[in-house]
Simulated scan of single mutants.
Amino acid sequence: MADVRWLDLPMDILRCVLGRLSFVYFHRAKMVCSNWYLCSKQTSPRLSGSPLLIMFLESGDCRLYHPEEARVYKTKRDLPNIKFLANSGNWFLVMDSKSNLYIIDVLSQKKIDLPPLESIKGCQYNLKRVGDKTFKEVGTHRCVIQKARNLRGLLWVDNKKEEFVVVWYFHKNIVRKYMTEYLAFCKNGEDHYHEIPARFALRDVSDMVLLPRGDSIYVLTTSNHIRKLTFDSSGQDGFKNILSPFCLPGPPIELNHHDDECRYNIAVRPSGEILVVMSIFSESSRPWMFLLYKKNRYLFPGNSLYNMLVEVDSLGDEALLLDLGITVPANPDLGIQPNSIYFSRTRHACFSFQKRSCLDLCVFNIATKTLKRFPGFFNLKLKDARWFLPS
């Protein structure tokens, strides 16, 4: 037996080995060789419904934290000089120091290169690369320079069908008003991006969520509109107002202090219901507080309160992954807490003009209004972090 190599283990013994591995190590092991990968397809890994936390260190190293195991894993490959843009399951959309985009599976390290930004084909908007971090608009009447630091992204991946959709856009703060004029997207198998010309719908973007199937986007605006953008590769696209405008109650008096920072995000439930999330934070003493709102289903057009959002007291057996803008079924036995909000605050950094650190890794219990923080990670000198749900 001493002469038997690990790569040549009999299938039944290999299945036994793989079945004993933790969730993270199982995904690593299946990438060892083709034999191990085939065996992993016949082996059931340990269940892990718990969201994981990926942490990007200033050194360029990456770490994975599994809350149920209370364990930190080092990834097989580090990602120095990259900027995180979005994720879907294990897949992360990142941009390197030369403004190249790719998606990578952080569990298996599988990588898919994406078309260059300047490959965008649109009737109104095209780009020309000017160095590694700068792009110039061409084909317009304006001379506009776009900086890579203003690039934002959305991602949707279907692992079973091996399909993905990548969306990117440049997002600017102009006198504390957010401006996004163009969206571009591509799908698996395409060598260029398609323009989504929706300037009017994107003038004052506060937040965006890419819907499952990857063919529509919900947009939350600073002028209290919720819009749905639908697009496909044939050039058929358009938008409609879901709520225009909606009325959102202000923070409760006991939470309304001069040093409070209040932000708004959008989230989508499995039922398709849209939530507006109010995040309230005070630098002085109080921790984060979250309030959830939804459309009043019992009012009809013409009613003076038709567009007034009502507060959501509970998510029931769902949990909100605010970094992703979705709620998911929760199962405490698998490690995901119901009626809770998983939050890293990095998603909001894309839309914030604040220059201070935007990391705050925590889980908020909606029923008890208590916060569980993970402060021990800050000695790792984190550059970015984000909750994700492994697939």
Rank of each mutant, 00 (worst) to 15 (best):
L292H: 07
L292D: 03
L292V: 05
L292Q: 05
L292R: 06
Y293T: 00
Y293V: 01
Y293H: 03
Y293S: 01
Y293Q: 01
K294Q: 12
K294V: 04
K294A: 11
K295Y: 05
K295L: 06
K295Q: 14
N296Y: 02
N296L: 02
N296C: 11
R297P: 02
R297V: 09
Y298S: 15
Y298T: 15
Y298E: 15
Y298V: 10
L299D: 01
L299K: 15
F300D: 02
F300T: 11
P301C: 12
P301Q: 13
P301G: 11
P301R: 14
G302L: 00
G302Q: 00
G302K: 01
G302M: 00
N303F: 07
N303W: 04
N303E: 10
N303D: 15
S304H: 10
S304P: 03
S304D: 01
L305Y: 09
L305Q: 11
L305D: 14
L305T: 03
L305P: 00
Y306R: 12
N307K: 06
N307G: 02
M308K: 10
M308S: 13
L309D: 06
L309G: 05
V310N: 04
V310S: 09
V310I: 15
V312I: 02
V312N: 00
D313F: 10
D313I: 08
S314V: 05
S314H: 08
L315Q: 04
L315F: 07
L315R: 01
G316H: 08
D317S: 14
D317R: 10
A319P: 02
L320A: 07
L320Y: 11
L320Q: 05
L320M: 09
L320C: 09
L321A: 04
L321W: 06
L321P: 03
L322K: 01
D323P: 12
D323S: 15
D323V: 13
D323R: 08
L324E: 12
L324M: 08
G325W: 03
I326E: 02
I326S: 01
I326F: 13
T327G: 02
T327D: 02
T327S: 12
T327H: 02
T327N: 04
V328M: 03
A330N: 11
A330S: 14
N331M: 11
N331F: 12
N331I: 11
N331E: 15
P332Q: 01
P332D: 06
P332G: 00
L334N: 14
L334T: 15
L334S: 15
G335D: 07
I336A: 03
I336E: 01
I336H: 03
I336V: 11
Q337S: 11
N339T: 09
N339K: 05
S340L: 09
S340C: 15
S340M: 07
I341N: 02
I341L: 04
Y342E: 14
Y342S: 13
Y342K: 12
Y342H: 13
F343P: 05
F343E: 08
F343G: 05
S344I: 04
S344Y: 05
S344L: 07
S344H: 05
T346W: 12
T346Q: 13
T346D: 03
